[in-house]
Design a protein around this nucleic acid. Structure first.
Lengths: 139, 139
DNA sequence: CTTTTATTGTACTAATTGTATCATTGTAAC
DNA sequence: GTTACAATGATACAATTAGTACAATAAAAG
């Protein structure tokens, strides 16, 4: 949950653009557990200097990862790893991921003084209105 | 009517700037009665140290809350929760507070590819096991 | 009571971060 | 060779946070 050292290796012979290599390597480091949710990535400029590339190239990689919801970039603050991506992860990991997310949510709600009834009611209402919104959108 | 301990939790994954997180949480704690009218908030420097952020970040949050008339900041004295807001405002704020928290949770869960069924099931399970834990603790 | 000191929030500026836009470069297709 | 396009670089910008000096109030010292 801290800032990662994050050593990436660029390969000129790979034929892949730099930003793609950065995307791939961050993805694999996440899958391998080298990067974990909450970790802060190096700033675009720091990583750019490390890799001797323009910081916009790193920014491009970060933007792609952000669009894939793998990281969360925040102007003025930095970039952070979000949750485990859904793809091919095992059923167990998937379950644990949702469980952790739910526990954080419920703990927060309780900490703020909301009751069990209020929480479950609000979840129901939100899910319901979200479903209706989807139906409306597709008309 | 005394100074609050006021434990706030910052979350890097939330995507929200620190000052916004502080604003949201103080609002929530107010509408849930954790903070009461007249309560003194920690000084900007004390809270900053607690959260390991710059005190100007806390000051920014306090300034926003001050503009919303939720708190009253007084140079040289401190910051205090203002006197009773109209009850219907309080109720509305309370609802909106939980609604916003819930929406963030559900959006995140959907983003991770979980279905509506999975989400509501997980919420039920978590609430249930939490209730049992409380019962067990009190034996 | 007056003066001094400490504590508190404020104002302004600087530094750090990601973003947006356009220019340059290189490569492939024609 | 020209053109088209993708990748990268340069520059300016915006958002957030940090640093510094200051003003108002309270508390302490005398």
């Amino acid at each position: 949950m801290e800032e990662a050292k994050l050593t990436l290796l660029l390969d000129d012979r790979s034929g892949l653009p730099i930003y793609t290599q950065i995307v791939n390597q961050i993805q694999s480091q996440l899958v391998n557990g080298i990067l974990k949710p909450g970790d802060q990535l190096p700033t675009v400029r720091a990583m750019a200097q490390e890799l001797r590339v323009n910081f916009n190239t790193v920014a491009r990689a970060y933007r792609i990862l952000d669009e894939e919801r793998i990281i969360s970039t925040q102007q003025g603050r930095g970039t952070f790893i979000t949750e485990i991506p859904p793809p091919e992860v095992s059923v167990r990991l998937r379950y644990e991921s949702l469980s952790a997310l739910t526990q954080r949510f419920i703990n927060e709600a309780f900490r703020l003084g909301f009751s069990e009834r209020e929480v479950s009611q609000m979840v129901r209402d939100n899910l319901k209105s979200m479903k209706e919104a989807i139906i409306t959108d597709s008309e």
